[in-house]
Design a binder for these strands. Structure first.
Lengths: 68, 68
DNA sequence: TAGTAGTGGGGTAATTGGGGGT
DNA sequence: CATGTCCCAATTACCCCACTAC
């Protein structure tokens, strides 16, 4: 709790996703560029990722490559 | 900084597991291929291994042999 | 408003995957 | 059958600096 708690659509930061996949945050950014991850861009240009999609990817469930 | 803790299992890189077992990373890969180790694939195709499972194997705890 | 941490972008070295041979 | 080493191609990790997020 602290910081923010989006009730509608839980989004993860690049560092969050990177920790879950045991990779570098830059690698997660690369996945978004490659269209392997659906990325939501902030007004400043930073990316946010859907927790549901990340979890599905971790579970090995292939999804639609909506792209960046 | 968000004190966020996504419920994800700690993962190890092939090099990590190889060092723990004193074997070549290629050998760890073969273990994963043989189904002796649960491997989680990154979006790039690289494998990540569950730390809990690796530690269990190192402790000499036999895995569930499905069949046989 | 200021300050700290995180992120984006580009570029380069190290690791990993796959097949084949010992 | 299991492990270590060779090849090459792809992916990932760490370096810089400038900007965003909180």
């Amino acid at each position: 709790m602290a910081t923010r708690t989006p009730e509608s659509e839980p989004l993860l930061t690049p560092a969050e996703v990177a920790t879950m996949f045991r990779v570098d945050p830059k690698t997660v950014t690369r996945w978004a560029k490659a269209g392997k991850l659906s990325a939501i861009r902030t007004l400043g240009g930073h990316r946010r990722y859907r927790e549901s999609e990340v979890r599905a990817l971790l579970a090995g469930i292939p999804q639609q490559r909506t792209g960046d």
